[in-house]
Simulated scan of single mutants.
Amino acid sequence: MNFSNALIVWYLQNKRDLPWRNTLNPYLIWLSEIILQQTRVAQGLPYFLCFAERFPTVFDLANADEEEVLKLWQGLGYYSRARNLHKTAKIIVFDLNGKFPKNYNELLKLKGVGEYTAAAIASFAYNENVPVVDGNVFRVLARYFDIETDIASSNAKKEFRALASKLLPNGKANQFNQAIMEFGALQCVPKNPNCEICVLNNSCLALKNKKVTQLPVKLKKTKIQKRVFNYLIFRDEDKNTLLQKRTQKGIWHNLYEFPLIETFEDINDFETLELIQNQSFIVNEIQNIRLINPVKITHKLSHQHLSVSFWEVSVAGKIKDGIDCDSVLKFPFPIVIYNFISKIWE
């Protein structure tokens, strides 16, 4: 049995029962693929079910408010996916009359849809004979064929895509693409794969050459930026507070947060008070300031590690345009803020 057929047989026997596999609806398949970018299935599944229930059609999603979309996305990370999802839904509804493009090349024209996502939708929904190449596919192919190409290099995707294309059985794109990704997710896992029970162990070159732990090769390392965030939770006499929207480019675009002072290192209450007085957040007199979390919260993003402090700042009188307690948690926040304040909010 050759590589492709062996994978498909394995898949039919071992595949997980996932809702987006029980449909040919390109909208639901697209929705699942956007949610699962940079996200494990176990984490993404509840979000898919939530979105599919709230927005059962692309028309429902297109007509939604962006803040509602971001709120439902809260905690999933990489929020540009949610914004692009919403924008693309509008394009499909208002520019394409609600009809999804029906082939790979047309799907590529959609915002937020790259080569992998276009290939996934085209093959899963329309069985178009195009290969998918994601991290799982890189790993399976690199190990099975003992390929030492650095998967972070500029030509790697082209090389692996060409190989996957040759392996793709004509007319079985849906099954093969699902199979190779599922095999990488469940069997040919990044660390400590159980090669003894692998259906491909008799012909896997990495296993034969004792290189399973060395493949795939990835030489480029992500440079991590460290940042210190000091969030100011203002409280007036009515316990109202202030929020601001992150409109600048970068992380958490269009999400809400408390007024923020970013510093190069951790600061004490005296330094915080001095910095607040140099800002234009409020004009009320500051009565008291205290650090709510003495142990800083470390929040890790793909390229950034954040050290987060929350300061409660009590002020005299009433804050202009203050937001009451009941309304605060209805806003879409970065998950590090939401998790913290949902525990301490009164």
Rank of each mutant, 00 (worst) to 15 (best):
S307L: 13
I286K: 03
P131R: 14
R235Y: 08
K320Q: 13
Q178L: 15
I197M: 05
K99L: 13
Y144R: 00
A206D: 08
P56D: 12
S327V: 08
K223M: 09
I121K: 01
K90V: 04
Y116H: 05
I91E: 06
I35L: 07
F229G: 03
A119P: 02
A156H: 09
L186P: 00
T23E: 04
A164S: 15
C188R: 04
D17R: 10
D60M: 00
L232Q: 11
F229D: 09
L168I: 08
L207N: 14
V228T: 08
L186W: 00
I35F: 06
N127T: 12
P56W: 10
L200D: 10
T149P: 03
K223W: 08
G250K: 15
E68I: 12
A185Q: 11
C188Q: 00
A179S: 13
F234C: 06
V133C: 01
D146F: 10
S32K: 02
K318H: 13
M181P: 00
A62T: 14
E182G: 05
A119W: 01
L141F: 03
K218L: 11
V199Y: 02
F51A: 08
L167H: 06
W20E: 04
Y231C: 01
Y338C: 01
L76V: 04
R21Y: 11
N177W: 04
N268S: 10
L200A: 13
V133L: 06
R21K: 12
V212Q: 02
E106T: 14
E274A: 14
I34G: 05
I289S: 12
F229R: 06
F229I: 09
T39Y: 01
K226S: 13
K296Y: 05
W311Q: 05
K220N: 12
A164Y: 05
I180K: 03
